Simulated assay, not measured.
Amino acid sequence: MITTRFTERFGIEHPIVQGGMMFVGRAELAAAVSNAGGLGIITALTQPTPDDLAAEIARCQSLTDRPFGVNLTLTLSINPPPFAEYRRVIIESGVPIVETAGSDPTVHIEHLKAHGIAVIHKCTSVAHALKAQSIGADAVSIDGFECAGHPGEDDIPGLVLIPATADRLTIPFVASGGFADGRGLAAALSLGADGINMGTRFMCTRESPIHDHIKGLIVDASEHDTRLIMRQLRNSMRVAKNTVSDEVIQVLEQGGRFRDIKELVAGVRGRRVFAEGDPELGVWTVGLAQGLIHDIPSAGEVVRRVAADAERIVRAVAERISSDSLVVGHGSGA
């Protein structure tokens, strides 16, 4: 078993977190991940109202007695959701862990920690991670450029972002973006992370609430089959390659603005993709990790497999490297 600062802080068995994905993070999936020893996450804003979130939390509590969390993504919009009400429901429901994301979480972290709730803040840069640490976050999830959804604007991949974060941060952190198997977990640990956060991998599980046809498309896709949209608006978003994402790119390349693509990128269209199984109904998020996904197992099997494979890899590497000599590669090299 791999024990890290993250597993110890959050009371879980394996350093594996299920990402708080919009329209995907529901009770069945979160409970299955937590029951297997990982950290499952319900997505608050997937629920239409705070009362619906309370019901979803209660459902998850009926399915697992292990720790799980709730993601609260702080969006900036003209008509923002009632974040304070969602937060109140989380506190009153006795949820032990919250994952915040998006805009400045200071007020929410203060309220949550005052009620004994541990907070993980999702970041896309070292600077943001340091800010989260300074305002009281208990841990950070650091998103590399490979991730689905919003990777930030710095375009820093995990191979650089993870050790750069490890060099500066003192609180535990998990690495996110591009992780789908035990090799990724072993690599993240070697780079200084305390675990990994996986989203796309958990989309392709039996408990995932998305349509089976979409799961099959992810299995069949490669790491080449995503698109980065809204780059010109400095709101980059990694989504599946389809006619809608191609149209968004074309409109913006021709000088269009957000108002010209607003209907194309509407969240309600992405929800329909996952519910109805038609990949051309809208834009929908998926990460480069889809190129590493070849099956649709249970979420529990994913957790156990990733943990076991990572432990095996770490042990194998340690056995190959003796304290007396280190031989790397063959031939003269380049």
Rank of each mutant, 00 (worst) to 15 (best):
I117M: 06
V286I: 13
R272V: 07
T285P: 07
V303Y: 02
Q61K: 13
F10K: 15
G25I: 01
L252H: 11
R312M: 10
G192V: 04
M230Y: 11
A132K: 08
A221L: 09
H14L: 12
G329A: 10
R271T: 02
R227Y: 12
P82A: 08
T73W: 05
D65P: 00
A139Y: 05
G11H: 03
P81H: 15
T285W: 06
I196M: 08
D104A: 00
A129F: 08
T124H: 08
R269D: 11
D104M: 05
S298K: 02
D181G: 05
V17P: 03
T7R: 06
V174Q: 08
I2D: 14
E280N: 11
V33R: 03
E28Q: 13
G37W: 00
P209S: 04
F10M: 08
R312S: 15
P82D: 01
D51M: 10
D167R: 14
E110F: 10
R201S: 04
I296P: 06
E8L: 03
V24P: 00
L130F: 07
R238H: 09
A310F: 06
F83C: 02
M237W: 11
D181I: 07
T100K: 09
T46F: 03
G277L: 12
I2M: 15
S125H: 07
C60E: 07
D181R: 13
R304G: 10
R257G: 14
G25M: 01
I2H: 12
A137N: 11
I12Q: 06
V219N: 10
S222Y: 02
A316S: 15
P157W: 08
L252F: 10
I214D: 02
R272E: 13
V70M: 06
L185P: 01
A221Y: 02
A114I: 01
A164W: 14
L264G: 08
I218M: 05
G152T: 08
R238P: 13
S34V: 02
S125M: 09
V33Q: 06
N242W: 11
A266L: 07
P151L: 09
V317C: 12
F145K: 06
V327R: 07
I261Y: 12
N79L: 11
V160T: 15
A193W: 00
A299N: 00
V265F: 09
V327M: 10
A334H: 15
G287K: 03
R87S: 14
H330S: 14
R269G: 09
V33H: 04
P105W: 10
I293K: 00
L112A: 11
L185H: 13
K215Y: 00
D194C: 04
P151C: 02
G199K: 01
C60H: 02
V302R: 05
L74T: 04
D295S: 14
P297C: 11
G152C: 12
G40S: 04
V265R: 13
E311D: 14
L53W: 15
G38E: 09
F10S: 06
V306K: 05
A148S: 15
S222W: 03
